[in-house]
Each structure stands twice: as structure tokens, then as C-alpha cells.
């Protein structure tokens, strides 16, 4: 257990705010190379197999400073996607057959063009996911109508709740976050989110609050549902368990708590070739706030751009991207451990 953080690594001037330092650290650990593991599983080079999901990070600004955040998001981060870049994203989306647009951040709702962007996507009849941190809904009055807005555009809400008690939740996400999250969940339930036959999907995300792997998703979902129902009368659809990847603030936590080597060994020992064959980067494109293209949000935070001639959304070339080789590094062990991990939970 440690102290809560209040500033991003960048604002602290921390060495690990630099992606190069993070990559050096990941390379230095005496662990088998991820590429070698893929070769042993006949999966190297890992290639794209389609573009089903556009995951767009529309800004690093957030009202929370979570201890495990791989984005290093926080109130002090000012990087925000402009409407011009959003328009370029829409042009790119129109050139693909993608089914889903996944909006993330930071707190994506803090982008002043968030609602405009969602409306544009909604008009295109795309499945829209918003990774909502819950507390933004109660952060101030201007966000209180988010549940209604989400409902209007049939947005699928995906929200982090690391545990069904305040101790573990607040330890990871900040003091008072659990109570505010419960309040926000009740507001979402009140408009129908998570309720049977409403068609409004509310999924929760569990990230381990420490240096350990997530539990079996289906088993934990049963417990989450029972506890949230009995203690708070809250309902939701599915629980996704997600492994923390050794990037940014979670990497900093692992090092500061002297858990880095042990955690990496755990990830390596839990390598699952079946999970490796179904990793989300094979069907996803990740776009940064400034319009660069990546294989996934984790690669984005390590500034590992796609292996393609044109790496910016302004020169989007779908054919080139469909034939790309996925950029991998040691952090990828996080997605291939155990049952595997993706933004949609377990892979196997």
C-alpha cells in the first residue's frame, strides 16, 4: 500500500513520463523476449486481420489521477483532440467497415467536442463505447445529464470499478471515488442502463488493485452482481477483468513497490498462446489525441506507432493498415497472460 497520487508523472517531472525510459526499463529486465514467445507459438510476426474497432483517445485530461493509469492522465494534462482531428477520424471511419468506435481518454467527456463527436458517430449507426470513469457524471452540473445523453445515442457505457468496496477502489482511483461511482451508477440505472430489457448496456471493468493478475471473469462477475445488488441496489450487464500493463503510472508503482521483476515474471510464466492469437490489436486501430495511428492504446502510450507508411489519420490508408505487422514489445505479455486481456476483458 502506498500514498495516493495527485499529479501526473509528467507534471511531477518524473523520468517515467518519458516513453523511451519506460521502453528501456522493459527491455532491461532479464526476461524472455516477447517476440521469441510468439515465434515459439507460430504467431510471429503478429499481423492485423481486420479493422473492427476504432479506439480513439480524445484526450489525456481527466478529473481523476488513478494510481495504475497507463495514460498518465489527470487534471493537469491538457492534450485534447480538436474537432478538426475528429473530422479526420470520421473520414477514416467512413473508409472502413468497422462496427465499433471506442472512445477513451482521460475522461473523454471532458473534451469540449465530445458530444458533437458522439452525435456524428451515432448518425453513422456505429456501436459507440464510452469508457466513462463514472465520477465525471457527478463532477459538476454540466455533466449530470450524461446518462440521458448516453441513452439518446445508445452509447454502451464501460466503467471502471476495481472492487465493490471503498477501500480497494479508493486506494487505486483516489479518495472518495467509490462513493461518487456508486452515485453515478445509480444515475445510470435510473435511466435504464444495466437494467433488464432496456437495451442500454452498462459494463464494469475490474483492474487488480496491486501487483497481481485478475481473477476468473465469470466468477468475479457473479460476486460483483450479488454485492452491488444487495448493498446498493445497483445492476449492470457484464464485468470485464483487465490485466494491468507495465506502462506509465502502473510501471512506476511496480518499481516503487519493488514488485516489478516479480510481476513481469508472473506475466511471462502465465503466457497463453491461445490468448496471444486473439489479442485485440489484430482487429483494432488506436488513434491518439493528435491523430497518430497505433495498434492499441498501450502502444500509443509508449509512442510505438503503427508499422505503415502513413502513420497519421490525415493520410489514412486502409489497405496499408490491413496488411500491417503489429508492433510488439515486452509490455505485450500483459495481454497474453492467463485468460488473456483486452479492453473487452478476457480473451479466452
Amino acid at each position: 500500500m502506498g500514498t495516493l497520487v495527485h499529479k501526473s508523472l509528467l507534471a511531477q517531472g518524473h523520468a517515467l513520463s518519458e516513453t523511451e525510459k519506460q521502453l528501456n526499463l522493459l527491455q532491461e529486465a532479464s526476461l524472455p523476449c516477447f517476440e521469441t514467445k510468439l515465434k515459439e507459438s507460430n504467431l510471429y510476426p503478429l499481423t492485423a486481420i481486420g479493422v473492427d474497432v476504432f479506439q480513439i483517445n480524445i484526450g489525456k485530461m481527466c478529473n481523476q489521477v488513478c494510481k495504475h493509469c497507463h495514460v498518465d492522465a489527470g487534471p493537469d494534462r491538457k492534450e485534447i483532440m480538436t474537432r478538426e482531428t475528429m473530422k479526420l477520424c470520421l473520414d477514416a471511419i467512413d473508409k472502413t467497415a468497422c462496427s465499433t468506435v471506442d472512445l477513451t481518454g482521460g475522461a473523454p467527456e471532458m473534451n469540449p467536442n465530445f458530444r458533437w463527436f458522439v452525435a456524428q458517430l451515432s448518425a453513422r449507426r456505429k456501436k459507440i463505447l464510452v469508457r466513462c470513469n463514472l465520477t465525471i457524471i457527478v463532477a459538476n452540473k454540466s455533466y449530470n445529464d450524461l446518462p440521458e445523453f448516453f441513452k439518446k445515442h445508445n452509447v454502451e457505457v464501460v466503467s471502471s470499478l476495481p472492487y465493490f468496496n471503498s477501500k480497494k477502489t479508493d486506494a487505486q482511483r483516489g479518495s472518495g471515488v467509490f462513493d461518487k461511482s456508486i452515485e453515478a451508477l445509480k444515475m445510470l440505472n435510473a435511466v435504464g442502463y444495466g437494467c433488464e430489457n432496456s437495451g442500454l448496456i452498462l459494463n464494469l471493468v475490474y483492474n487488480p488493485s496491486g501487483a497481481f493478475l485478475p481473477p476468473d471473469q465469470s466468477v468475479l462477475e457473479v460476486e460483483f452482481k450479488a454485492k452491488l445488488r444487495s448493498q446498493f441496489d445497483i445492476v449492470f450487464n457484464q464485468l470485464f477483468t483487465i490485466t494491468n500493463l507495465p506502462i506509465s503510472r502502473y510501471l512506476q508503482y511496480l518499481i516503487a513497490s519493488e514488485n516489478y521483476q516479480g510481476y513481469m515474471e508472473k506475466l511471462v510464466n502465465a503466457y497463453n498462446p491461445v490468448a496471444a492469437s486473439t489479442v485485440m490489436c489484430r482487429t483494432t486501430l488506436s488513434i491518439s489525441w493528435d491523430g497518430f495511428i497505433f495498434d492499441c492504446d498501450f502502444n500509443q502510450m509508449l509512442d510505438l506507432k503503427v508499422s505503415a507508411k502513413d502513420q497519421h489519420i490525415s493520410a489514412f490508408n486502409i489497405d496499408d493498415l490491413l496488411n500491417r505487422i503489429i508492433i510488439v514489445n515486452q509490455h505485450c505479455y500483459g495481454c497474453t497472460a492467463g485468460a488473456g486481456s483486452s479492453c473487452g476483458g478476457e480473451l479466452t
Binding site: 472492487y163 468496496n165 477501500k167 480497494k168 475490474y206 487488480p208 496491486g210 497481481f212 493478475l213 485478475p214 481473477p215 476468473d216 466468477v219 468475479l220 460476486e223
Partner: peptide, 11 residues
């Protein structure tokens, strides 16, 4: 202890 945490048990 580690296994219990990975099975989702709390303190």
C-alpha cells in the same frame, strides 16, 4: 495470499 488476491478475495 497472492493466489487469493488473484481469485478476487479481499482483506
Amino acid at each position: 495470499t497472492e493466489d487469493s488476491m488473484e481469485q478476487g478475495f479481499d482483506e
